[in-house]
């Protein structure tokens, strides 16, 4: 089926798989809190970027718009990770 080989469909499959890894894999106790949390933040950032570039078609958009939204991802991810590292893991 042509549908299954569309780039958007491959991106969707990747996003679904990444969500399962985050929700039901990395949240388990066999990973230390900081490794799991930083991986979860990084995966969320990658997912958001894929939505921006492929679903919202920013990969074909004028560069200033693409850079503006990619900068948002960078700033928000950096802030979340920074504040997280600033606070020692509780458990």
């Amino acid at each position: 089926m042509a549908l299954l080989t569309k780039p958007a469909t491959l991106v969707w499959l990747f996003l679904m798989a990444a969500t399962c890894v985050t929700t039901w894999g990395l949240s388990k106790d066999q990973f230390t809190a900081s490794v799991a949390t930083l991986s979860i933040i990084l995966i969320a950032a990658i997912k958001v970027r894929l939505v921006l570039l492929h679903f919202m078609e920013l990969r074909h958009a004028p560069l200033p718009w693409r850079l503006l939204l990619e900068a948002w991802v960078l700033v928000v991810t950096g802030a979340i990770a920074g504040f997280y590292l600033h606070a020692a893991p509780v458990a």
């Binding site: 949240s27 799991a36 939505v51």
Partner: peptide, 17 residues
């Protein structure tokens, strides 16, 4: 965008430890 915001919102509230 609604989808994208939830992608950050969900780990923030439910998963950070």
């Amino acid at each position: 965008m609604v989808d994208l915001l939830w992608i950050f919102l969900f780990p923030l509230l439910y998963l950070l430890r």
